[in-house]
């Protein structure tokens, strides 16, 4: 429990979508996996999410969208992170994301997209395997 680097995660809901059961569930799952998780709440702009990642010195930004706005918001968050010099932040997404959109999101810099039914231990493993400096 003492001096030890802990994985810090920002969980965010970009846009006007109010469905945060999944984001809240994962926030708890990540905390139970020993991570420190900041949940930003609903209706975040990409600017707010990136400002939170900057101030919290986050290792991971988790984006959840169930309203079909992922093709705009997810790449925009990646872009703003880079603008702020946060090149080593792992961005992952989830929610209702059509399969045909996943390749485009990955190309835009979203490291992984986890849809409904994904095993939570799989997501935790992906994060632990892919964050920088660990």
């Amino acid at each position: 429990m003492t001096a030890k680097k802990r994985i810090k995660v920002i969980m965010a809901k970009p846009g006007l979508d109010g469905h945060d059961r999944g984001a809240k569930l994962l926030a708890r799952v990540f905390a139970e996996a020993g991570m420190e998780v900041v949940y930003t709440g609903l209706r975040q702009t990409p600017e707010m999410i990136v400002e939170a990642a900057l101030q919290e010195d986050a290792d991971v930004v988790g984006l959840s969208s169930l309203s079909g706005v992922h093709n705009y918001f997810f790449p925009r968050v990646v872009e703003l992170l880079k603008e702020k010099g946060l090149h080593d932040v792992l961005v992952v997404g989830g929610g209702i994301i059509p399969d045909e959109d996943i390749a485009g999101l990955k190309k835009a810099g979203v490291a992984a997209v986890f849809g409904p039914g994904t095993r939570t231990d799989e997501i935790i493993k992906f994060i632990k395997d892919n964050i920088s400096g660990s």
Binding site: M1, A33, E36, V37, Y39, G41, A52
Partner: peptide
Amino acid sequence: TGGALLGDRIRMQRSSG
């Protein structure tokens, strides 16, 4: 677990922008 759920930002929306 040593993990934590940090939820204070949710109620600081006005300041977080």
